[in-house]
């Protein structure tokens, strides 16, 4: 059986790892390559790097950061943030990414997912889906780093994106991101049931119990940032806990 994955996430801005709450109030958390290398040594299954800079200069710096991480990393690297075209995706792969996640641009044109799947392989095309609860029930898609509500049903969009070419869904709960209140399990279960591809749970992890709950809700992988950056949990200690709870994980 393929084991469940634990994925530390590096939000990178101007060459440094940062982390905020609900995508705001970013704090410095360290050097991306050094953190990635340390997480690999702890038993991380994969690294996700999200470029949260918003300028062309920041984008160029992000490519440099990808190269620096790739030089020291022997596990898969997914990179996202600001990918608008097949050429952007290709540039990230050439710099050393193994997969590319797309969010706003894919929402505006699902053909981007098809282009990446056809040009670079479906295994390279990751849909980053930010979703928030609607007062009337259900979940809606947010784009532009959570700043814009779209009114579109998140589960329906996940289905459409996978049909267009996405090979994996990185699902972030905007309500929970950075809050430490645990993953949104209803959102997770709804998307996991709707699509045949792997789903990565993101947003809200604080305690090991949160990760256990996400796996039990159907997640194939869990993404977490603060829990690792702040040194409260190492990946190997966390996996020890998961294994005790009966979750099948890779131990180093």
């Amino acid at each position: 059986m393929v084991t469940r994955r634990v994925i530390p996430c590096l939000d990178v801005r101007d060459g440094r790892v940062v982390k905020g709450v609900r995508f705001q109030g970013l704090r410095d958390q360290g050097d991306p390559a050094a953190l990635a290398q340390s997480y690999e040594a702890q038993g991380a299954d994969e690294i996700v790097m999200l470029d949260v800079s918003a300028t062309p200069e920041g984008r160029r710096t992000a490519l440099e950061t990808v190269r620096a991480i790739r030089e020291v990393l022997s596990i898969p690297l997914t990179v996202g943030g600001g990918v608008r075209s097949l050429a952007d995706a290709r540039a990230l792969l050439e710099a050393g990414a193994d997969k590319v996640s797309v969010n706003t641009a894919a929402f505006e044109d699902p053909g981007l997912l098809s282009a990446i799947a056809e040009g670079l392989g479906r295994q390279c095309a990751v849909l980053a889906l930010d979703a928030a609860r609607r007062p009337e029930g259900g979940f809606e898609v947010l784009v532009r780093s959570g700043r814009q509500r779209t009114g579109r049903d998140a589960v329906a969009w996940a289905r459409e994106a996978v049909a267009a070419g996405a090979g994996e869904v990185l699902l972030t709960s905007w309500d929970r991101d950075g809050t430490g209140e645990g993953y949104d399990l209803d959102l997770l279960a709804a998307v996991c049931q709707a699509v045949p591809v792997p789903v990565i749970a993101s947003g809200g992890a604080d305690r090991p119990e949160d990760l256990v709950a996400a796996f039990r809700a159907g997640a194939d992988a869990v993404l977490a940032a603060s829990i690792f950056h702040e040194g409260r949990w190492t990946v190997d200690r966390l996996k020890e806990h998961l294994a005790r709870e009966g979750i099948e994980v890779r131990r180093c």
Partner: peptide, 13 residues
């Protein structure tokens, strides 16, 4: 087969 998630992504024994 359709009984498992496809693509297979991850570490397998």
């Amino acid at each position: 087969p359709g009984t498992v998630r496809v693509p297979q992504f991850g570490w397998n024994a």
